[in-house]
Design a protein around this nucleic acid. Structure first.
Lengths: 217, 217
DNA sequence: GGATTTATATATCGATCGATGCAGAAATCT
DNA sequence: AGATTTCTGCATCGATCGATATATAAATCC
């Protein structure tokens, strides 16, 4: 099912020493610019002309380097996950308790979603992407979205094993709840809600943590 | 700034007795079908061909009846709000306490977003719409989204006045929190989360209500 | 019934969509 | 050096985009 095994096609991670004329642009840099454009405008609304304009290359170069618009979007998603999404999970992964992990996830999400870095669009590229009528992209994006739920469930399961959270708690529902809050923050961020308001949402979420985790519901 | 004052143009609410050849299709029915398509596919991804196909009319009829693709989308948004969105606020508006109002809103949203009615797409058309590069549509949609926040703030303000909620509570933040949960549920619904899971999210949200409203944060 | 008005059906408009063909330029190989 | 390989710039492909011109059909007005 792989696309190709030929050299210097498809993804080409390293700078692969080739034989012919060297590429005149930096692939990672061009991919970063394409990622930002897809992030801001979405898949459908972003045209090849838009992409070549911001990437500073011609369309034949784009197709030679990335294959197609869909393949470029997939590469952009990968770039996004590696470059931006990972930072949101750092403190989550190292937090000693599930409670602190969730609080870190939501707080760091609030910062990341509201453009704490310059030139970064608001909201999550994965959460807000709409690729409904491109089956393969839709599946990829949905898979990316499900990772959040899986990580939350895994962390909460650990917390139950550690005695932090009682076994009577519905892990799945609690993970869904946190995922829902994070998803909702993306929409607020896209609409221009400031960082402090998203952080307040994170605090509101955590303010109810004990009664949720303590109760039987 | 109004488009036109001529008879039988633009929106034409009632069935206005005209002079010439009568319209061969039902305007409301065609609008309902267009609404469902926009709802499922989004603005950009829906073409005039797609629309005329499901509406069962030719493109000249579409333009004569609705003006343009943008105008049709605006009409579809209006149809959506009148036909679907209103039902989600019914119990909210009649609930005796803010707590019951919010619980009703989230519970009824869970049902509405997961297609409790047949032929209805999952998720909220307003929340999930992406019309980034059509300034006028973007403004309209954002305004529609802000209504939720306003209603929540108004209801919570009333609750403070009634003594249900202490005045020390940050009304704005609490309203943002509820809005965030509702927004997030739309994304879960679009990805196929079943109704019971959204209802569990609503329960999780309400499970923390007392400690949120009781605390000072 | 004739004039007027409005809607429909067919065909198509210019613009843009995603994607390539081709010739020349710039590198490595022998 | 010449042969080979790869990338770039220009032009353009067929398809589809949103939107209309034109001619005919179906209603009311007089």
């Amino acid at each position: 099912m792989q696309k190709s095994v030929s050299p210097s096609q498809d993804t080409e991670t390293t700078t692969a020493r080739g034989r012919g004329r060297p590429r005149a642009f930096d692939r990672e840099d061009a991919l970063a610019k394409a990622t930002h454009l897809f992030w801001r405008k979405g898949y459908e609304a972003t045209s090849i002309s838009d992409l070549t304009a911001v990437m500073g290359i011609g369309s034949p170069s784009l197709y030679a380097a990335f294959g197609s618009k869909e393949a470029l979007y997939m590469a952009a998603l990968g770039h996004y996950q590696a470059r931006y999404e990972a930072s949101v999970w750092r403190r989550f992964n190292s937090a000693p308790t599930a409670r602190e992990a969730v609080e870190a996830l939501l707080t760091d999400s609030a910062a990341a979603l509201t453009g704490s870095l310059p030139d970064v669009p608001n909201g999550c590229m994965v959460t807000l992407s709409s690729v409904a009528d491109h089956a393969d992209l839709a599946e990829l994006v949905r898979a990316a979205r499900s990772v959040t739920l899986e990580r939350l469930e895994a962390r909460l399961t650990r917390a139950v094993a550690a005695g932090e959270v009682p076994a009577s708690i519905d892990i799945r529902a609690l993970a869904r709840f946190v995922q829902t809050v994070q998803n909702g923050m993306s929409i607020l961020a896209r609409d221009g809600a400031p960082r402090v308001e998203l952080e307040a949402v994170a605090q509101m979420t955590m303010a109810g943590w004990d009664s949720r985790v303590g109760a039987d519901a």
